[in-house]
C-alpha cells in the first residue's frame, strides 16, 4: 500500500514538474513576442489589447488543461480539445466587438498540443489586430481535414485576399515566425486567406 502511495506521489511530482516547465516556456513566448514586436517595428493598432488578449489566451488554455485533466489519474499528454478551446476563446474575443463572426466545424474528436493551441490563439489575435486597423468585419472559419487544421479568414473590405500579404507585409514578422513554429503554411485565395497546419 505504501509503495502505491509513493508511486502516486512520484507521478504527481512529475506532472507538476512538467506543467511548471511548460508554463515557464509559455511565459518565455509571451516575453519573446513583446521583444520581437519592438525589434521588428511591429506597431499594433492597440498594443494593450493585444497583450491582454495573449494573457487571456494563456489563462483559458491552462484553465481548460486543468479542467480536462483533473478527473484523470495522471494525464499522459498535454493535448487539449481544439473545439472546446476555440469556443471559449472566440466567445472571449467576441465579447469586445460585434465585428467578428466565426464558423466552427465539428472537431469534437480533435485534441491539439497545448503549445500549438497557444500559437493558434496568438495568430488569431494578430488577425484581429489587422481587422481593427482596417476597421472592418472579420470572418473566421475553422475545420479539420486529413490530419490538418485549416483556419480561413477574410475581411469584408478586401476584395482580393491574394494581396493580403502585400497589405500587411511590414507587420508580418511575428505572424511568419508563429506559422513556422506551427509548421503551417498560408494559401492566399481571392475570397480568403487559409492557414493550414498539421496535428502531430
Amino acid at each position: 500500500m505504501s509503495s502505491e502511495i509513493q508511486e502516486g506521489q512520484d507521478q504527481l511530482r512529475e506532472v507538476l514538474g512538467k506543467t511548471l516547465h511548460r508554463f515557464k516556456n509559455n511565459l518565455q513566448t509571451q516575453l519573446s513576442l513583446m521583444n520581437i514586436q519592438t525589434s521588428t517595428n511591429r506597431s499594433y493598432f492597440d498594443d494593450k489589447k493585444v497583450i491582454v488578449d495573449r494573457v487571456f489566451a494563456l489563462t483559458h488554455i491552462y484553465d481548460l488543461y486543468y479542467r480536462s485533466n483533473k478527473d484523470e489519474y495522471f494525464p499522459k499528454d498535454s493535448r487539449i480539445s481544439l473545439q472546446s478551446f476555440l469556443l471559449q476563446f472566440f466567445q472571449y474575443i467576441k465579447s469586445s466587438t460585434t465585428k467578428i463572426d466565426y464558423e466552427l466545424h465539428d472537431m469534437s474528436e480533435i485534441n491539439v498540443e497545448l503549445d500549438d493551441l497557444l500559437l493558434l490563439s496568438y495568430i488569431i489575435i494578430e488577425i484581429n489586430d489587422f481587422r481593427k486597423s482596417l476597421d472592418d468585419n472579420l470572418l473566421l472559419e475553422i475545420e479539420h481535414k486529413e490530419k490538418k487544421v485549416h483556419l480561413k479568414f477574410s475581411f469584408s473590405s478586401i476584395e482580393d485576399h491574394q494581396k493580403f500579404h502585400e497589405l500587411f507585409k511590414d507587420q508580418y514578422k511575428i505572424f511568419d515566425l508563429m506559422v513556422m513554429q506551427l509548421k503551417g503554411k498560408f494559401d492566399y485565395k481571392k475570397k480568403f486567406v487559409r492557414l493550414s497546419f498539421p496535428i502531430l
Binding site: N25, Q28, S32, N35, S39
Partner: peptide
Amino acid sequence: DDKLVSYEIKTI
C-alpha cells in the same frame, strides 16, 4: 527549436 525564442535571442 522554438522559432520565436531563437529569433528573440538572435535579435538581442
